[in-house]
Design a binder for these strands. Sequence first.
DNA 1: CGATTATACGTAGGACTCCTAATCACTCAA
DNA 2: TTGAGTGATTAGGAGTCCTACGTATAATCG
Lengths: 249, 249
Amino acid sequence: MPAAAPEPLPTRIAAGLARLSVALRAGQWRLAEAHGLTATQAQILGLLAARAAEPARLRPGEVAEQLGITRATASDALSALARKGLVAKRPDPRDGRALGLALTAEGAEAARAAGDAPALLAEAAAALSPADQAALLRLVVKMIRGLQLRGAIAPARVCVTCRYFRPHLYDDPAAPHRCDLVGAPFGDAALRVDCADHAAAPPELAGQTWRRFDAGGAPHGSATPRLAAEGGTSRPRPSAARARSDHDP
Amino acid sequence: MPAAAPEPLPTRIAAGLARLSVALRAGQWRLAEAHGLTATQAQILGLLAARAAEPARLRPGEVAEQLGITRATASDALSALARKGLVAKRPDPRDGRALGLALTAEGAEAARAAGDAPALLAEAAAALSPADQAALLRLVVKMIRGLQLRGAIAPARVCVTCRYFRPHLYDDPAAPHRCDLVGAPFGDAALRVDCADHAAAPPELAGQTWRRFDAGGAPHGSATPRLAAEGGTSRPRPSAARARSDHDP
DNA sequence: CGATTATACGTAGGACTCCTAATCACTCAA
DNA sequence: TTGAGTGATTAGGAGTCCTACGTATAATCG
């Protein structure tokens, strides 16, 4: 710690995240280039691969939005990928203006090889203790929602904005949440960041879900929900399994 | 949560961080462009501004390293900035090959306006609870160290690698650490990410410091230091203020 | 129904990024 | 003093990324 006047906490957090971002971007370049691609092209490949299992084809506009680039840039990169035979463009049957994007066989191969640039970050994350990992995921999800709220990011398919998500439904500290779609309880460590089954919650439900999640399972009527005891998956709770019976009235 | 087979936790963490990175980069572009700059140029300006108070001038090679780009790219960007009159290059008196970089008055102004691109992230971070902020900073610092260890990132001036850092010296949960340089105790919330007074610790000390920090203040002789109770700044501790007397033997 | 408005994609032009590889220029140790 | 190493720059080329504009299709409304 320093000789004085450290910047405010949020600023230091942002600076730290910026550093992670630098590592990520450098890793993207290194990996992509080894396969004759560029960082953006590899990112697109990775995005398409992640969505490959879903019926609805991704469109250029969505790619741009997800990657935070303009449509023009996305169009450029997609043309390059098409030229290299890694991506197939075909007219969307539903909309004559739109295009459906799909990986070719070669593209799928390239995506496997070069599309997983965040692997370096994942490696570093894997070195954290399980509890730290869960805590980090939880906090990252909160940040994502915050950015989304501010319009700084395209809507992500995260649990906290999903209609099926019931945070802190149960008292089991290891699995307090519930997904109504699969009907199973789970903990912070299982939160999704890009869930294929995500369905946006209507505004009111979204607000309610968020408040419950953010409060972190504090006693429901409490006036001072949190402030001190924020932590990993295993925050002790006052009483034991009363599960399934403590909805909001 | 999902229909099945979610990716492993570290992978999801990385994906989440990648999303934050997208937001950051988009924000960098938006802000920089509004001032007639590019993202990289603005980043360089921000870096120079952050180091402005220090006696030793930054050099092009260091800029490249900090930003995770090649020297050639850094050189390009610096030429552009010099052309715009925002950065002054002058020969380094210590080394005839090297250059010392400094912001001009205009450059300092531009840095203030466009150099703080992570502001968006900071804003989102500020919306977290204080405890969450401290926890996030702690985890980000851990990630930075992990990346640094893997050579994925230039050495950052973070407390955990500093010779003056004494983690978990005290039992006060709000301020367990100590900086030997300023001689004051502090908590996770005050951890630095780019401390001007940072001095790299020698390997052995570094390892020891890290283990103490990572263990998170678990009882010193414990066989199972952590695993469960990882958390914010305020994990309860067995006994009370015994400060200043519990070094490793 | 036909005109307007909005949407989806593309292209053009330009500054810049980002890489590898090669070239100067200087430092330092032998 | 010579040769290896280091710091910066340049050359060349593909690509990013932007702001406009085009062009085609879709949705909407009088």
